[in-house]
Every structure is written in C-alpha cells, then in structure tokens.
Design a protein around this nucleic acid. Structure first.
Lengths: 296, 296
DNA sequence: GCATAGCGCTGCATTTTATGCATCATTAAG
DNA sequence: CTTAATGATGCATAAAATGCAGCGCTATGC
C-alpha cells in the first residue's frame, strides 16, 4: 500500500529512535525520510516527533497518531481478509495471547484442526499472563486472547466464557488419586506444587486458603505449568491445573481430581478481543471454533 | 492529507458514478484519476469498482473498502481533535442526528451554551426518525444520536438515557388544562392531534390505546411536532409531546399535563454513538454537557 | 576542554512518478 | 444506425521524490 508508506516510516522512526537508523530499514535515504516526515507533520498540522540531540521521540500527538496508525492497519487487514473471503479463499494470520494452560493440548489441537481446513491461515501464539494479555490486545499485538481469570477486562470484549474448576494433579500412585473429589484440606497434608502468584489458579487457591485461615506453603513454586505437572507426576506432591490444560488419555500415569467447589470456587476461562474491534475473518472463525470446542 | 487523497477519489467516483464526473470534483483529469484508481486496485489486490457501460459502481469489495475509508477518516478526525485539545484549543465539528422533539428548545439551548465556551466548534443537526438515526451513525453521517425510543439499538452504544413521560399539550383555555395529571380516556373525549406512526410518542400511545381496546382516531395526523403544538394551541384539540420538547415559560398560552403512567408508560430518550467508536473531543464533551442537562 | 561521532536538516542535480492531451474501443439510448 | 456517453491507453510534459554531499548542532569520551 504505497499511500500508507508514510505510516511505516513513522513507525520505523519510532522503533529505531532516529531517522538515520530508520532509513536503513525503510530502504530510503535519511534525507528523503527526513523530508517525508517533515511533509507529513506539515499536513498533519502538528509535530509528531520531538527532536532530541540523539534522535527522535514521539511527542504526545505522535502517540495518538501511532495508535491511529495501528488501528487503521488492523482495520485494513480486516478488510483484506473479508475481501479474500468473498472469493471463498481464506487467508490471513491470527495472533493469540493465551494463558499457559492452553499450550500443551488445547491450542495445538484447535490450531491443527483449523489449519487442516484452511492451510493458508498462519498463527502466532504468545504466552501472556492475566495482565499482559489485555495489554497485548490494546497494542494490537494480538487479535484474540484466551485467558483464565483476566485481570481488568476494561478493553476486553468477551466472546465466550466457560467455567473451569481447579483440579488437583498427582501421580496415579498417589494415595488420593482414586478419589472422586478432594477437599482443599486433604491436599494441604502433602507437598504442594504451585504456580507463581501472577497466575489465576494460584490467586484462587490463595483466596481459598485464606478462608480456611491457612497459608499455602509450596514445596515448589514455578511459573511453568509443565513443571507443575511433571513434578507432581514423579513424586508425592500435588499440583493444580484447570481442565483445559489436562488430558487424561495422554497421561495414564497421572490422576486429575477436582477440588470441591465448596473450597475453591474455580474460575472463568475467557475468550475475547479488543473492545470495539471487528476481527479479520480468519480470527473470527477461529474464535468460533474455539468457543465450540470449549462448549464440548 | 495528501496520502489519503486516493480515498477522496474513490469516494468521489462512488458518489458521481463515473470517473469523468468525479474528475471535475477532484480537480484532476479523468485519465489521471482513472490511472490512480487502477493503481490502487492493483495494490489493494482486488478490483473495487464494477465497470459498467455507463460508469462505475462499487463491487462488494468496494463496499467493504468504503466502510474502512469512512472509519479511517472518522478516526483521523478524532486524532486531530485530541491533538488540538492537547494545546488547550477545542476545534471541530459535531454531527448530531436527533428526534424532532429536541429541535425547538433543547438542542438550540445546549448548542448555544457549548459554543459560548468553544466558539470554534461547529455543528450539524439532522432530524432523523427512530430508524434513520441509527443508520446515520453506521454511515458515519452523525457522531451523536439523541433519539426518543430508538428502534434497533444494535449498533447504538448508549451514553445516557433518561425517562420521558408522555405529556398532553393543549391551549391554556382547555377544560383539562388545570389538571395535575390526565388519564388517557379523558383525552379521548377531545380532538386528537397525533404525530405520524413512525414516531416514538405515537407508538407508545397506540400501544396504550390498544390496551383499552380503543383505536386512536386523530383529527389531525402530522409528521411535524410544530404542527402538533400549534394546532393544539389554537383549538380544543389535544396533542402529545415529551417534556424535553416543551418549555412552559416560553408558552404561557399553553398547558402541558402529564398522562398517568398507569395508562402510558412513557419512554426513554437515548443519547448514544456508534458502537465501538471513539468520539472526537468536541463531540464527547458536548455529549457530556447534554447528559448533564438531561439529568437536571 | 577539545575532538569526535552521531544527530537532524538542506541545496541541487537526477530519477521517478503523476498528469494532461488526444484518441480508441465499447455500449446503451434515441 | 447514429450519437453521446463511458473507461482505457500511448506519449510528451510537469511535478514530486530521492540521493548525494555537506552544514550546524550537541552530548559523549578521552
């Protein structure tokens, strides 16, 4: 899109912090780039960059403009995808911010399934915590977020939500492994493997423990859910995870037992996008597939 | 904005239906315009116009593109207004779609008040019925809508809503003029002056009459609320209007009496904008003023 | 404290792009 | 069958963007 090149240039200058560096990325001379920036500011009616001795920095007007540029580009991508869809083609790229729990089974399965039907759609998956996921949407770095217990939800428009009880994860040989449900106090008798405090499961567990006047003292605290599972699998410890991150068939050596909702209420897994956005066709259809999969 | 000129050209061709006519509006030759359209379509990756023997018409892809163009322009206007606001200046143009009831007193007063503080802000006010108002928002022909009992509300994002009882409007000499409230059946004894069926007040009255197993048979039906008021003022007839369209001080020769809510439930006056839009500063601030005025 | 390296900016010749003019092919209307 | 529209195109010209070389400025480092 030749007529939008100036936007690329502005972003390049913003990224690199100087015209001369940005000129290399843009395949243009610094002088030409400089004049295009100046011409744009002239038309725009206001400076967009602060001129510092060591380079350029966006001023407040520039920050506003940058947001417009990103919005504009997103919407153009949406138009392209809808136009492609008119002719039956489905192309595009879907950027997803998700909680760790979605990584081992759920998202790989859903993405494979989707790409089996539409091989020209590509994906980016970024792991983001409950706060970063929403920030990703605001910065247009993700189209969709699939997050357990997101933090603010102000710019987050919910497409689908599903309840997820908290499950205890342990070795199949564990004394508690044959129970149908567990009380939280049962678990506290054993070594605990807990996710770090920024994770939704941990927040729910901490709250529940506080109601029992207990404090959780994990034998192992980690920011890796893989670590939680594997440590629990090989010892006497008990880990915690939500059902979407578990797959009983794949791990006959492990047992997954729900914690009674009387103790730990469980939480919601939310699928959503930036408030007010119209998603590209590929992202929208993928979201619909995910919603269906979460229903089942 | 030179880099967005191609969008103006596309819109000009869309409006006039041919390149040659559009060329005049654009101050450019038909041949140059033709080639810019072709170059754009090449970059865009798809034709945007159908070539007919008598001119050009947008194809489905073009319709999608046109929507993007309008969205894009709106958002750029918002950025400009926010940038102006950074320097304490408030400029801009506010486009309002409103019900007729707002015309005689409310909007003139509010616009004057606003412009007393910000004289560089200009306004467009278009009268739209309950259906057209929302369509206006979707086509980006209005920033704000102020509508009594709007029809669909799917693309309508509510900023403020206020209840409006239905008022009987009559000459000060009318036998019922001194009542504190009126029952609907009292009114049916007299000549009725009713707005046409597309108006919210009429819809409410028709529903209420139906509950009494009566059918409203107006002596005068009109699409002008001015007509309703003036006809009622000079005869024995009774008209109907919502409070925001009335001003007792301005018309000592008239009486305004609320209809009992047991008979006619009244309706909501909604202030809103297109779902998901970020308004320009001027429109946003004006909306806040309107909301405050409606509260009082 | 002074040289240096990096920055944005600018005059000028050159290249690239856009435009205008004249004209063609096509088609619906009279 | 003519006519009067339409969009498309070849070509010379006008306009715009670019590259090069160099200027003035300022924080940094010896």
């Amino acid at each position: 899109m030749r007529h939008l090149l100036i936007y690329d240039m502005i972003e390049a200058v913003h990224r690199s912090g100087s015209i001369r560096k940005a000129a290399e990325d843009t395949n243009i001379t610094a002088s030409a780039l400089n004049r295009r920036i100046q011409a744009f500011e002239e038309e725009f009616g206001s400076e967009v960059f602060e001129r510092l001795p060591r380079g350029m920095r966006l001023n407040p007007a520039g920050e506003l403009l940058l947001h417009h540029i990103r919005l504009q580009r997103q919407d153009m991508a949406r138009v392209h995808s809808q136009v492609a869809d008119l002719s039956g083609i489905r192309r595009g790229h879907v950027k997803i911010a998700c909680s760790q729990a979605l990584l081992p089974y759920f998202l790989p399965r859903e993405i494979s399934k989707y790409r089996a039907e539409f091989p020209d759609v590509t994906f980016t998956v970024n792991v983001r915590d409950r706060i970063q996921a929403e920030r990703d949407l605001v910065n247009f770095e993700s189209d969709l977020a699939l997050v357990f217990e997101p933090a603010h939800m102000v710019d987050f428009e919910v497409l689908y939500a599903v309840h997820q009880p908290v499950m205890a994860v342990m070795s199949a040989a564990h004394p508690l492994s044959s129970r149908k449900t567990l009380r939280l106090r049962d678990c506290l008798e054993y070594d605990l493997v807990l996710p770090a405090s920024q994770f939704g499961v941990r927040v729910l567990l901490d709250q529940s423990a506080a109601r029992l006047d207990r404090k959780l003292e994990p034998a192992l605290e980690t920011d890796s859910f893989d670590m939680v599972r594997h440590f629990a699998a090989y010892g006497q410890g008990i880990g915690f995870q939500i059902p979407v991150g578990l797959n009983a068939l794949a791990r006959p050596d492990m047992a997954f037992v729900p914690i009674s909702e009387r103790d730990v209420a469980g939480g919601q897994l939310y699928l959503g996008h930036l408030r007010g956005r119209t998603l590209p066709v590929a992202a929208l259809k993928f979201a619909q597939q995910v919603a269906t999969a979460l229903t089942a």
